[in-house]
Every structure is written in structure tokens, then in C-alpha cells.
């Protein structure tokens, strides 16, 4: 494979930072492979978004604003992506490792009979082949895999694992022709947003996360949120907190929630179960505030402060705020 294609995930033209991370990494990989860097932007708002993505070092941005992409679940998007992949020739397709991204990856991998690498945090090019590095088995192994027997590879890429660098180079924007003779079977009747449109968890530089130790919904707002705000970050949660209905599932971090790699992760009243750990263990600095110094989270934290989160967090918020204003 020589080319690199970025699948852009967005909603009505609003995208996340990972798009720009992928665009930047696509350039580096395409250069190493001697091919071109492409992006595919589909559905309502695609045109406007393509203009923004243009600031990143891509060669071609393929756009379609076809309403079918928003009316029908996934199938039209896969048809368009397939079309671009076939016209670009052998390529590596990059999608964000999100719920939607994983769906796209599985579908396009089958459509193109391609190999698939999941949750990639690092790429390399060795002798013209792409190497994908990803943590596996809850982080006990870091594996590097290569594609074989195929012209195409698909990688789901962990948000926040790569840096984004605009260079204003101005890719060419081209329209994708509608694939002919398709009819779609899964109709989206309703699309409901439950999380507020704040900073996405995956791209937050700092996450203040709460678990069962919070004891109810209010402390997420009154105790954790002020600290997250002071740090310029976002609030996350364990599954126990989401299961209890204290926060929406969209804030859940872990194997069945979001995978995050912030620079700073502060776990408050979270014990550190394996399913939680796999979603956050690649964070830069991990700090736990827990009543119990022997809880499993101590095994993968940099610092554990043993004490009551309700006393510590507000004091910490004060210190962070003071440091900002001084």
C-alpha cells in the first residue's frame, strides 16, 4: 500500500481534534510510502469542514454532501469510502478509534478484503510496509503488526496519540460521484444527543474522573467539574457511576466506554478495575485519590493520595485556580 486515506468522523460539519491528528499522521506516512495523503468527508456539513481540513498537509480531500449518509446507517458512508479507496489504489485507511470508527473499520475491511489493526498508538514504515503498534490484552503487551496478503489495511487510531500540525498547504477538494444502483436498508429515525456539546473526552488534555466513591450525581457537578474546568479538561466516570445513573454513559471510560490518552488523569473514588484500566492506562500522568491505598489503581498510577476526595479535590481546585491567576 502506498497511499493513506483518512476517514473523517463528524456531525453536521463539527469534528474532533482526532481528525487533524490523523491528517497530520497521514502526511508523514504517505511520504514514507511514496504515495498521496487523502481524506474523505461525507454528509451534511462536509463541504465546510473540508475547507477547515485544508489547512492540514493533505493532497486530496474527497467530499460528498449526499443526504443519504445522514439518513441511513453506515452503508452509504462505506460505499463512498470504498469508491475513494478503489480510485486511490492500495492504501492504508485511518479511522478514529471511536464507536462509529470501529464500525466503519470492520465494514470497510470486509468490503476491501483488508487487514485490520485496532487501537493503534504508533505507526512505522519498514521496507515499504506499514507497522501498527497497539497495546493489547489490557496493556500487558504492546504488539506491532504488519499487513500481508492484501492491498489495503485499515487502522483504528487512538485519539490524542498523535499531534496535529496545520501547515496551510491547501489540499485540493474534489467531489465524489454517487455510487450507482444502491438502496439502503437501515433508516435512522431519530438521533439523540445525551452528552452536552462540551470538549470531547477523547481529546481533553486533562480528565478528572469519578467513580462509586462520589456517592451520587451532584459531586460530579459540584466537586469534579470545577477542578476539570480549572485544569482546562473534562469530567469522566467509571462504569459503576454510569450504571448508577449519576452520569450519562457517554462519560464512561474503559473497555465498554471511551479510550482516552490525556496528559493528566485524576481518578477520584475509582478502584481501578481491569475494564477501567484498559481505557486510560496510556495517560501521561495518572493520579488517584482514594480512601484505600491498596486499591488496584495504585498498580498503575504515578501518585496515590490516600484520603477523602471530598476534602482533597476542592482544595486542589483552589490551588490550581490560584496558580492560574498569579
Amino acid at each position: 500500500m502506498r497511499n493513506v486515506i483518512v476517514f473523517v468522523e463528524h456531525k453536521g460539519g463539527q469534528t474532533r481534534k482526532v481528525t487533524f491528528e490523523l491528517a497530520t499522521e497521514a502526511r508523514a506516512l504517505a511520504d514514507a510510502l511514496g504515495g498521496k495523503a487523502h481524506a474523505v468527508v461525507l454528509g451534511g456539513g462536509a463541504g465546510g469542514l473540508a475547507e477547515r481540513i485544508k489547512a492540514y498537509p493533505l493532497d486530496l480531500i474527497h467530499v460528498s454532501e449526499d443526504g443519504d449518509v445522514d439518513r441511513f446507517l453506515i452503508d452509504p458512508a462505506i460505499d463512498y469510502l470504498e469508491r475513494v479507496a478503489k480510485s486511490a489504489g492500495p492504501s492504508l485507511i485511518l479511522v478514529p478509534n471511536t464507536m462509529y470508527g470501529r464500525d466503519v473499520a470492520g465494514r470497510i475491511a470486509a468490503r476491501l478484503n483488508a487487514g485490520m489493526a485496532a487501537d493503534v498508538t504508533q505507526f512505522g514504515v519498514e521496507g515499504g510496509r506499514v507497522a501498527c503498534t497497539a497495546p493489547k490484552l489490557g496493556g500487558v503487551a504492546i504488539t506491532t503488526c504488519l499487513f500481508k496478503n492484501t492491498d489495503y489495511g485499515v487502522a483504528t487510531v487512538r485519539p490524542n496519540a498523535f499531534s496535529a500540525q496545520a501547515d496551510g498547504s491547501g489540499a485540493e477538494i474534489v467531489a465524489i460521484e454517487k455510487p450507482a444502483g444502491r438502496s439502503y436498508a437501515m433508516t435512522i429515525e431519530d438521533d439523540v444527543e445525551e452528552a452536552s456539546g462540551e470538549l470531547g473526552l477523547e481529546e481533553a488534555p486533562a480528565i478528572v474522573s469519578g467513580g462509586r466513591g462520589l456517592g451520587g450525581p451532584e459531586p460530579f457537578e459540584t466537586v469534579l467539574k470545577p477542578l476539570a474546568d480549572a485544569l482546562g479538561g473534562a469530567v469522566g466516570a467509571s462504569r459503576a457511576a454510569a450504571d448508577a445513573g449519576w452520569v450519562p454513559y457517554s462519560l464512561q471510560i474503559g473497555q465498554t466506554g471511551k479510550t482516552v490518552s490525556p496528559q493528566l488523569y485524576i481518578a477520584c473514588g475509582i478502584s481501578g478495575a481491569i475494564q477501567h484500566k484498559v481505557g486510560m492506562r496510556t495517560a501521561g500522568t495518572i493520579i488517584a485519590i482514594n480512601k484505600d491505598g491498596a486499591s488496584p489503581i495504585a498498580e498503575f498510577s504515578d501518585l496515590v493520595v490516600v484520603g477523602d476526595l471530598f476534602q482533597i479535590v476542592p482544595e486542589l481546585t483552589k490551588l490550581v485556580k490560584e496558580s492560574k491567576s498569579s
Partner: peptide
């Protein structure tokens, strides 16, 4: 179906 930010209602056969 759950999405990253909420849920969708989808029909088919």
C-alpha cells in the same frame, strides 16, 4: 443503538 454522544433509533428488516 448507542452512539458516542447519545443514541439513535434505526429501523430495517
Amino acid at each position: 443503538r448507542e452512539t458516542d454522544s447519545g443514541y439513535q433509533v434505526v429501523t430495517g428488516a
